[in-house]
Design a protein around this nucleic acid. Structure first.
Lengths: 221, 221
DNA sequence: TTTCGAGTGTAACAACTGTTACACTTTAAA
DNA sequence: TTTAAAGTGTAACAGTTGTTACACTCGAAA
């Protein structure tokens, strides 16, 4: 297989590092799923490395009563919960559902072990990806640990300003944002309204601007 | 260095796997901290692998206003936030504070990279540990995502019954448990009282018993 | 341009949790 | 055994969030 014909999934998560991740004789299989199919369910055994090679999926935690807390949307190419392959209790912690038609690459665990020891670039990517996942989860945990809605908004806004500057764009509607925060949509709207009324922030469509940074930081409970 | 004189920290996180984790010529340094010293602060650069080799520490998230959300207590020997060594934004996500006098082993990043490729047992341990950390965080996230206190109690209880059977022991007092759930102590006490009054659970000292498993599951919001 | 649906703003009320305070019980040390 | 400290139970009230409902705005498609 030469580089020109390498499929998209060989790029793993970083398109710039598409070389030397996988050897010529890699053992793998590919399975296709339709839109809205469950790809994995919370509790499913995780006995191989799964990489989403086309389409996109959403992962959701399910509290046993059926309530959902949206976690994130994953777009190909990206591995799915790779950390769990090596955990003592290797079961999927979330539901994974296709939001488009998707294809998933499967590499058996022993084959992954071989890759780890023979392909340094693969190992580096694997470690880096898992490390970033851990940071994502830690960040999410920190957000959820803030008790007031205004506090969550403040935390999120400060994070976005650090990334994008002031003003900045939020590409989610209120319903999605409320789901991300784990709160009810009208409650989020109320908190936003009050923060606008207090002269802390300004909102035009998807553009948000901090007006009073001091007051904003006081909201971080 | 022969095996009989291997120090405790060579056992890493699993005392049964003390062989072949580290080579003879490992480059490292050790630093000591007093009780209540900060070992790391949220935001500190993480440029090496740190392993707690004696004593114990607690990790806490700090919301910028000073409020604390207790995360966990770590007892030697165990690595400290090893995942962040390989993340793109390699900063500590939590405060790490000694709750006893502690010693911390430091292995530089390039030395860790060498270990990963030359010591398969080290790599296996490292992967497994990070995987378990991810599961811990996911579990904590799931707990915090439950909105009602009774729901959190129910989730926690069901988890404990799966681990210990029914009845089971909770080795935390109400204050610690409330901190773990991220709620106020009297609120937790109230919810527990109501669950007892409703005949759902029974509590004697640290021993908890489920009486009505059906009602308990209905509390998982 | 019209129209429909998605998205947003808001209000009234219910439900839940936090705060503060204090009495009581248990534990461990003197 | 006595005593102080830690832990627990509980109440009253304040504060925040959820629920439900509905009007309004905006934008894309017909």
């Amino acid at each position: 297989m030469n580089k020109a014909t390498d499929p998209e999934w060989k790029k793993f998560s970083n398109p710039n590092d598409q070389e030397n991740l996988f050897p010529e004789d890699l053992k793998y299989s590919i399975k296709a799923y339709k839109k809205f199919d469950y790809i994995f369910r919370q509790g499913d055994l995780c006995d191989a490395l799964y990489i989403l090679i086309s389409g996109s999926v959403k992962t959701e935690m399910v509290t046993e009563n059926g309530n959902l807390l949206g976690i994130e949307i994953i777009t190909a190419p990206r591995p799915l919960a790779p950390a769990f392959l090596f955990s003592d209790n290797n079961h999927f912690p979330v539901d994974v559902t296709g939001i488009q038609d998707v294809e998933v690459l499967r590499i058996p665990k022993d084959e992954v072990m071989r890759l780890m020891t023979t392909q340094p670039d693969f190992m580096q990517q694997f470690l880096s990806h898992n490390a970033n996942r851990t940071q994502f989860l830690t960040n999410r945990l920190q957000l959820l640990s803030i008790k007031t809605i205004k506090g969550k908004i403040a935390y999120f806004i400060i994070e976005q300003v650090n990334l994008q500057g002031n003003p900045f764009i939020i590409n989610r509607n209120q319903t999605e944002l409320a789901g991300f925060f784990g709160v009810a949509r009208p409650s989020l709207a109320r908190s936003l309204s009050e923060m606008i009324a207090d002269g802390i922030i300004e909102v035009n469509r998807k553009e948000y601007k901090i007006l009073d940074s001091k007051k904003l930081k006081e909201l971080l409970v």
